[in-house]
Design a protein around this nucleic acid. Sequence first.
RNA 1: GGGGUCGUAGUUCAGUUGGUUAGAACGCCGGCCUGUCACGCCGGAGGUCGCGAGUUCGAGUCUCGUCGGCCCCGCCA
Length: 588
Amino acid sequence: MKLKRTHTCGELRVEHVGQTVILNGWVDNWRDHGGIIFIDLRDRYGKTQVVFYPENGAVYPAAKKLRSEYVIAVKGEVQARPSEAVNPKLATGEVEIRVEELELLNVSRVPPFEIKDYVDASEDLRLQYRYLDLRRPRLQRNMILRHRIAQFTRRFFSEEGFIEIETPFLTKSTPEGARDFLVPSRLHQGKFYALPQSPQTYKQILMVSGFDKYYQIVKCFRDEDLRKDRQPEFTQIDLEMSFVDEDDVMGVVERYIQQLFRQLFDEDIPIPFPRIPYREAMERYGSDKPDLRFDLELTEVTDVFKGTEFKVFAKVVQSGGYIGALSVPQAWDFSRKQIDQLGKYVENLGGGGLAHMKWVDGRWEGGISKFLSEKEHQALKAVLPEAGNALVLLVADAHREAAQGILGNLRLRLAEELGFIDKSVKKFHWIVDFPLLEYDEEEHRYVARHHPFTSPKYEDINKLETHPEQVRARAYDLIFNGNEIAGGSIRIHTRDMQEKMFQLLKITPQEAERKFGFLMEAFQYGAPPHGGIAFGFDRLVMLIADANSIRDVIAFPKTASAVGLMENTPSEVDPKQLKELGISIKNK
RNA sequence: GGGGUCGUAGUUCAGUUGGUUAGAACGCCGGCCUGUCACGCCGGAGGUCGCGAGUUCGAGUCUCGUCGGCCCCGCCA
């Protein structure tokens, strides 16, 4: 190319008037008036209007042929626009380039969709032509935002004394947790590496090595089904610190979030964040990641129905279950159809059903009201929050948390439907005191709720063998507007405790040795007390960018079925490659 | 693995009870236009109605299957 840019397309202002400049970029929009031709030239910095006049016989005919997404270089003088032609919507809107020279750097086929934020295209098309989608201002903004947050993150943790250390991608498959992506070994046929679900064990080993404060912005891999906020490969901000307790880890995270919003967006986020025990979150909001931008709390009404004639509830009460209610004044006039839809939603969540009744003008009506006694009517009214007319939704289940979870989902759905959520509000809080273990019905054993390296709370250690389900973990999750954006814990750092934990998880000493022997051995050489946390980086960026999906903040994401539409992955491989790996494909 | 939803022009969508030649907007192509900026005006081209069966005199429309996108449940320590 002859004409190399002297400025970007977002740069020129009135003070450049009179200068001769060169711009490079893409034809964003062209307006041919028969005589004068205007072209908006675009690059990632912005747009600048360039003007071709018919009097310039050398370039004018070539300008006539320019089309969308052609790549051009223009040389010319910056001129002030006539006052009536200033475009206030454009940062460069007070000036334009009177083109003297034009160089066509490349032509473009007509793109499958327009490179404009205001033009919609289906997501599969956008993913297939991801390079064009990424050329659009919105995704460019998202990627640049992601870059700024990543840069801030490195600067912040470095200044806090954290060392960035890379950990391997070719790692060891582990029995607990998510399904691993496996990588076959050519040099060791029949053996496999696993891509890391997280650098968990490596960062703990780094603590044993004395690195004290470690961080990394790192890819992690989990072979599980996708969601709008879950991709098979995703990025974590991973931290680990030695000689710390919960307050130290949570403290540095709070400073990080506060500084992030202050330095990047000049926004004040108050710290420390509230800490809500897991139990309380479930009781009040029916979620371990409640959205606190709106109220609407659950009410336990189990006692109201002690000795009830209403069979469904009677059965639940007898089995020691839970009955909870959600009283929604704003939904008091919901139609039969709307309530039926809520019922279907509950069924889809795996709930037994949704009971309802309405408090209208001082009395109960509709739904299950006719099956309840006058005493129950009064007791229910007394226990529910004071309100006028309201729709009351009731969920009963033998399993307390199952019922609460369903009510929690209803709470969220109703909040969205009824517009309770103020999008401008940012609510951060911690969930703490998680159960260490939960019982896995399928495997008939306890499994770690967080991961098997999480330390139990000191005061609960004596319950490890007698009441494992009551033991609380030294774990904490950071919730941002109802999204889990970080989770971590204080770890086990002695071999004895780690062995005890594996024993509780019904992992045999042999298996523990085979899978985690290196970690337990390391613990025998002066492992310091340590703990850490990991952020879902994509999620954090998604929430800050106000994007609808994690895919909008990842340059090359996969579809919901884990397919790369642009490059067509996964794909079959050459039989020769398989042979080298000692792998044969079993036909279905 | 299960549930929901969508699939019609290059794109975003409309398409009545199953009935003549499947429409609109944007984009694209051609013409006109010297101050537009999501320019304007005139004209034009453009369709395997995702794919495959079936029902029917007749299917974009109904049925079954299948493929794909998206959302949810399960799953995600």
